[in-house]
Amino acid sequence: MTKFLLGHYGYWFVFLLMTLGFYGMVVKKNLVKKLIGMNIFQVAIIMFYLSSAGKWKATIPIVDPAIGTAGTARYIDPLQHCLMLTAIVVGVATSGVAYALLITIYKRFGTLHEDELIERMKNDLDME
């Protein structure tokens, strides 16, 4: 039981954060809130990968001459770290485009609340 708890508690927290982020994306009506939810979701996914990468009693993935490289159990898996670096960059890029879109929308319609936005789009005369 202790072993199971110790081996899985990280996952429960990560899943809680993921659900929080997903909640922000699907339930919240303000577009900025949706983006905040998106950020939280992405960070939670990164945490998921990293928690599966860890090893107890292991050191960071930089070759230490005192340990050598024969035993893989002494270093934390480096592959997920590399993948998640990429994922962070992708997250920033997505947010950058989203910010640009938010600014354009606010300039044109004067609101970021989804319901109001739909209302104002209906009243907009530009029929295309």
């Binding site: 994306m25 979701f41 879109l101 936005l117 907009d124």
Partner: peptide, 17 residues
Amino acid sequence: SRKAPVAAIRYLILGTI
């Protein structure tokens, strides 16, 4: 068109999901 950014951000949010 004028309404395109709204469509784009909806696509962005769903696409990111």
